[in-house]
Design a protein around this nucleic acid. Structure first.
Lengths: 213, 213
DNA sequence: AGGAAAACTGGGGTTTCCCCCTGATTCGTC
DNA sequence: GACGAATCAGGGGGAAACCCCAGTTTTCCT
């Protein structure tokens, strides 16, 4: 019997997923969470075999939740569910400690297979993205890890706030640092991403799932 | 017996929805579509009682698909499924001719109720958004349709280029007009949309489907 | 443990661009 | 003629982008 916690911010999606999971008699859903914080707390308390975690969630993203669970020494296998197929995403998710990455455009059978895979200690990547991972490995000199992974935590934070529409001054006050510091981070991340316009940063942040469109 | 077509670009979401729908014995799903064009073709061919339509779909958005079905004289009731709760969305959806608006953060029971409602000729709006619609009606002078429809062709063109990352100077040369003209359009469209930051414009343009993220 | 590298922090100054303001002219439509 | 749309213009305030720099802390590697 495989115990599972489902985390997704949309109730109806959660319900649907649970139905699909419980079509397998050896799967049992022991909890559901509607945001990242709730997911972390629930997983640490109930210790499921597998966590089916959406990326886009309020309060704490699925990626950050995965990271926290890893630091907390949690042994539950984490299967990330995402609507994005971009390489940057997959990298981030796997580095955060997830065991699998399933795109939402998968059949329920694929999810079943993914759960079986991570249960046995393996990794699972949706067919749609394995090719991209292979591509990424095949050409390591194409400019590096494609973006977001080369940013520091602070730079990611600043990027997110830029994309949300805050001015540098507002970001400075939000983060409790000086305007000049924000300016530095801003310059540095623009240099790293080779994106030198706000519009480009916003699109990048949206593609990367850091902010909603 | 109520016949239903489900349109959503994520297969797993479709599957989940179908399960939830068929939990009601008087509901039967007679087709599923993964994009707007497919949805329009299928609905016109199979004439379901109800269409459960996601907004975010490739090729043709759920809103545009709804509009096309209306023009084609389709009598199927359209129930739009959306992850957004903003007023601008709801207005656009209803003006496109949909009979209902259900946020994804609803329980399956709500979807059942919504289908019953539109079947009997009524409208259905998720509790989360009814208040917003009431607000919008209560103050009709707050700017009108609150969206892209109030922009002129030229302003839309400028907005698109802004969102694509061009500077005003580049837009001017692209359109073959002076920098000052672009500046005017820029100011005017910002005023109309009440969005005064590039980041906000980019997100708006992406939501409106004018540019890719 | 010790040192190197990176990250985070802060500052000064310059240039460019954005944003808003007030105007104006032409054109087509109602 | 009134109106809206599109075109163009000047000027001013402010933010952003880019340049230089440097101190502190954290992280990483040997």
């Amino acid at each position: 019997m495989v115990s599972i916690v489902v985390a997704d911010d949309h109730k109806i999606v959660r319900e649907g997923l649970i139905r699909l999971l419980e079509a397998r008699e050896d799967f049992t859903v022991i909890g559901e969470a509607s945001n990242g914080e709730e997911a972390v707390a629930m997983v640490l308390e109930r210790r499921p075999d597998v966590v089916l975690m959406d990326i886009n969630m309020p309060r704490l993203s699925g990626i950050d939740a995965t990271r926290q669970l890893g630091k907390a020494g949690c042994t539950s296998k984490i299967l990330v569910l995402s609507m994005h197929e971009s390489r940057a995403y997959v990298e981030e998710v796997l580095r955060a400690g997830a065991s699998g990455y399933v795109v939402k455009n998968s059949a329920s059978k694929d999810v079943h297979n993914a759960i079986d895979a991570v249960r046995s200690g393996a990794s699972y990547l949706s067919p749609a993205i394995t090719q991209q991972v292979v591509d990424a490995i095949a050409r390591p000199g194409d400019g590096g890890p494609s973006g977001i992974s080369m940013l520091t935590d602070r730079e990611r934070e600043v990027l997110k706030l830029i994309a949300e529409g805050l001015s540098s001054k507002e970001i400075a006050s939000e983060l409790g640092v000086s305007l000049k510091t924000v300016d530095s981070h801003r310059s540095n991340l623009m240099e790293k991403l080779d994106i030198h316009k706000v519009s480009g940063l916003v699109r990048f942040a949206i593609r990367a799932g850091m902010v909603e469109a």
